[in-house]
Design a protein around this nucleic acid. Sequence first.
DNA 1: GGGGTCAGGTATATCGTTCTACCTCCGGTA
DNA 2: TACCGGAGGTAGAACGATATACCTGACCCC
Lengths: 349, 349
Amino acid sequence: MAGKPTIADVARLAGVSVSAVSKVVNGRGGISAATAERVLAAAAKLDWSPSATAVALRGARTRAVGMVAARSADLLAADPHFTVLISGIERELAPVDYGLLLHVVGEEPGAEERAYRRLAQERRVDGVILTESRIGDPRFALLRRLRLPAVLVGVPWHEEGGEAPVVSVRAGEQEAGIRQAVDHLCALGHRRLGYVSGPEDRVHSVFRRRVFESALAARGLAPAPVVVSDFTAQGAVAAMERLLAPGPGARPTAVLFANDTMAVAGMNAARRLGLEVPRDLSVVGYDDLPLGELVYPRLTTIGQDLVRLGRAAVTALFGLLDPERPARAPEIRPPRLVVRESTGPAPAP
Amino acid sequence: MAGKPTIADVARLAGVSVSAVSKVVNGRGGISAATAERVLAAAAKLDWSPSATAVALRGARTRAVGMVAARSADLLAADPHFTVLISGIERELAPVDYGLLLHVVGEEPGAEERAYRRLAQERRVDGVILTESRIGDPRFALLRRLRLPAVLVGVPWHEEGGEAPVVSVRAGEQEAGIRQAVDHLCALGHRRLGYVSGPEDRVHSVFRRRVFESALAARGLAPAPVVVSDFTAQGAVAAMERLLAPGPGARPTAVLFANDTMAVAGMNAARRLGLEVPRDLSVVGYDDLPLGELVYPRLTTIGQDLVRLGRAAVTALFGLLDPERPARAPEIRPPRLVVRESTGPAPAP
DNA sequence: GGGGTCAGGTATATCGTTCTACCTCCGGTA
DNA sequence: TACCGGAGGTAGAACGATATACCTGACCCC
């Protein structure tokens, strides 16, 4: 009684055995309603609930899931991708009393692997949620070796033999957003589009670029200039300078960016180059961050349903941990274009 | 051997007792160098490290700290305050193999308290880190009742009897940033400043507003119009409309905002009202988010050393958990003004 | 009345560590 | 020779829950 109360204290107070208390709190029956009530009252009075560690040790279920974010503090701050995903994850975790163990490691090589190893070897979590899969992603093999159940949020890499031993969220319809953006720009009269991609080791970067290219082709437009960048603001500025430089072929009149951070930075770069958005140049982002509504002109962008994606990841992970459980995954909205102010009619030639 | 290896597997492989293995990995001596080496080799071979749950159960030390963010997904995404803090926290936690258990709860009443109760009652963490203290913050009493060690990041509420039973990070110098901002604006010739504050139940909101007011007084300027807002973009727009409305007294020529999100939104609100920043109106934010460099004009703002604040919080918490440990807190830079493009000379009257 | 059944419990092994107490050599000393 | 001390270990009791196996009446039925 000196320290925190244990199940034994509750049992004593209720005048029953420890086993009885356990049965009651786990609703496993065999205890009369009257006794159960006494037990519950005692537990409430002592403010007791089962120690997560003891339960974990006993049951080999930690009731926690892990997540490793391999990003610098700056990039993490600039792009709330993780943050939003996490709040979706939590929405699903909280009702079933699961915890989320988060590791933010920098981008030093090895740090990420070390984080996963710790999670697995110290048995701190039942499974992990991955995001931002990379091409030839080493994490799948690692997690398989560590026998740590994992779910990937986003697009997995289906080609080149790197079959994903994990559950992937969302199929088809991924392309909708970019298609809509291209259609939207075409409808506004744009014919020369540009694209600023993210790092090409990211699956979703490559995926989005390809969708863009195929959407162009579907519209019968010429292949567009693509600049590979790095998701950062500085990268976007450099990309814009290349795209808008007077060179062979006409300048694009509209540019799509692989994320909002780059789109916003790109808009400003254009402005510094003497172009007004959207009069001289239309800009489209990706992610629909709150940022997009803050800037001037407000950003036309492609919105993803990140919160629900996070929830679905948890559901999938639970399904992996316990195949019996009926997994009713939430419906996820496909990416869709949010038209605001940064896109407008193509300038006259 | 079927499942994950245990200390017993290591002991068997090394041909020693379980106790010997434990002594070796905890460096508690009494084991010959030769044996120790055999043990370490066996552990490495089996990829074993002690189960965090078992250690926690045994030692009443979970080697994890908790954090509860009571914010909606949107606000969390718009303001990376938590994110940056967390990466600082992790920087300190990772080397000593501590984990961070994060709970993102919405703003529903009771959700926050429930999260803390769970953390404490289920004994999932050794302590928690609080941020954004509120006036008459109920968390202090709650955590004391739960006997959960806590450290507050930021300004505590020293007045009105709400003495904080927690370690507070940073003393003095807090005022530097706002003072510098006021000085900077005065030097540019501004005499009529405005201030958009955050919710007044937040200690730092009130603190910043008061510093602003006293900085004005120190400069011999007249009291400035203050609008209390809510940290959101929409709130900032409304605040701007009130501040800039033609009314009694002249319009301010410069406005300080309690965070960057509001500052950026406020800039755009001003633009929609026909004012150009910084020609007609100077704007200063607070936080120095990456966002500030992205927008046009780039935002003059007050930067906080959030990463190091997070690290210091962990150090302080460790000191609380184990008073023996020599706590060498990192040096934290006081808030300071970062001058960019959103401030300029006061317009001629 | 003896035995079976069932509801309503209790006793106890177990999970993977840590840590205290103890054991066993072996060399040195009186 | 008897004893001591220390180095280098081992045995086993916690830690706080869960789950299996078992116990104990009460009641019913033939």
